[in-house]
Write a protein that binds this DNA or RNA. Structure first.
Length: 403
DNA sequence: CACCGTTCAGTTGAACTAAGCAACGGAATTCGG
DNA sequence: GAATTCCGTTGCTTAGTTCAACTGAACGGTGGA
């Protein structure tokens, strides 16, 4: 066969795209300058600056809703700081860890292990060591080089709700055992009330300085989108009003710039798929639906099998009876029979209750504890997912369960 | 009718267990002389 | 006899289990008006 002639990817390669460089719309992208966060960057820089003179900067706590640029600002500022430190010949190391990632940094042991692997080549086994030993290794690495360390702990609230605040206490105390180096912590949290439930000692040392990121308003999001769109799209492919509408979408959602960016990206993809030369307003509506779908499908399909069985049970129960509530007991019964059918080991009701409340936290279910009076208490469970997605989800689950 | 103790079906926290894993140290095996 | 490999033991984390205390309003009985 002649090379390239009938290759199915040729269509894809030759196809014209509205995108020039899609990367700038992805969440991982760090732009050179960050609009409407100059104030926060300046504050953060001021707080961190002392480490350029080998003094320990205060620990910092950053709050703000999702998509208000917390992570971006922290990364950007520390990056600049690192560069400045290099110029000034100051030893400085910045470590970023996202504590939310399930199974990688959601326990004390794993968080420290993550920190260690971020700092160097030292290997920590997944399990088997005493946590104390992991701390020792961590300290050893810190001690090896006398320098300043800045630890960025992203989504720290998620971590503490799972693993407790023990680690934070230990981390804040480490400085006492390290005369030659200093570590400072930047904690990032979406949850404003998070520090209130913290041990007062940790609270005071962790939030020596606090930074609040206000939500962006629609105009600010527009600026952000324009800046990114400049890089992301080809010239003149975006029709008037598109940016504004995407921005409005983000602004409606607690000033969430991330969602607005995502929407713009997905909208562009829709335009591409429709072979449209420009990104039109009507593409947004389609993008808007797709964005939620993608997110939920992503979450669901990455869950383990037992979770799928539970969700599938709930899905079926809801199908059976329209609009009346589903209770934990029913879910468990159906779940058990599903386990038998698929020859999966049956977990206890205790665990299933936990799984249900995890789904609740993920926003896939709505599970509220109610009392049915003399008929006990239970959770009132309902799906939080739009009707139109259910078939798709059902097929994902069925695929995974292998009925 | 208002009040109040009972009751149910889970919830929730804590202690416990099994499965994996790594390190340790002694026993068994290998090796070079 | 020293070096290396093997293997059982110990001690750890973690997901899940077991145990038991707790919960909160509907039910139904009681007494009062």
């Amino acid at each position: 066969m002649e090379r390239g002639k009938d290759n199915i990817f040729d269509i894809f390669l030759r196809k014209e795209s509205v995108f020039f460089n899609k990367k700038s719309l992805q969440t991982s992208f760090t732009p050179i300058n960050i609009p409407h966060r100059q104030e926060q960057i300046k504050q953060l820089a001021n707080i961190l600056a002392p480490c350029l003179k080998n003094e320990k900067p205060s620990n910092i706590f950053i709050y703000g809703y999702t998509g208000t640029g917390k992570t971006l600002t922290a990364k950007h500022t520390t990056q600049e700081l690192e560069e400045a430190a290099k110029r000034e010949n100051v030893e400085l190391k910045v470590v970023y860890v996202n504590c939310k990632l399930k199974g990688s940094a959601d326990t004390e042991y794993r968080l420290i292990a993550q920190l260690i692997s971020a700092l160097g080549k030292e290997k920590i086994p997944i399990t088997g060591w005493p946590t104390e030993e992991v701390y020792k290794t961590f300290l050893k690495i810190l001690r090896k080089q006398s320098q300043n360390y800045i630890l960025i702990l992203d989504e720290i609230d998620q971590f503490v709700s799972k693993a407790g605040d023990n680690v934070l206490y230990n981390l804040t105390r480490i400085n006492e055992e390290l005369p030659e180096s200093q570590i400072s912590i930047i904690g990032i949290s979406n949850n404003i009330n998070f520090v209130d439930n913290l041990d007062p000692r940790i609270k005071s040392s962790l939030s020596e300085e606090e930074l609040v990121f206000p939500p962006y308003n629609a105009l600010q999001i527009q600026d952000i989108l324009r800046q990114r769109a400049e890089i992301a799209f080809n010239k003149d492919v975006i029709e008037p009003g598109v940016i504004e509408k995407c921005a409005a979408y983000g602004a409606r959602d607690n000033g969430d710039a991330r969602r607005a960016l995502e929407l713009l990206r997905v909208t562009g993809e829709v335009a591409d798929r429709k072979n449209s030369k420009t990104v039109k307003l009507e593409h947004i509506d389609e993008g808007e639906g797709k964005i939620d779908r993608d997110r939920i499908i992503e979450i669901i399909s990455t869950q383990p099998k037992q979770y799928h069985l539970v969700l599938y049970s709930i899905l079926n129960l809801q199908n059976g009876k329209t609009n009346s509530s589903i209770f934990t007991g029913e879910v468990y019964e159906l779940y058990k029979s599903l386990c038998n059918k698929t020859s999966t080991s049956v977990l206890t009701q205790r665990r299933i209750a936990d799984i249900i409340s995890e789904f609740d936290m993920l926003g896939i279910l709505n599970a509220k504890v109610i009392s049915k009076g003399r008929y006990g208490r239970t959770r009132d469970i309902s799906m939080e997912i739009s009707e139109s997605m259910l078939p798709k989800i059902r097929s994902i689950l069925e695929d995974n369960i292998k009925l």
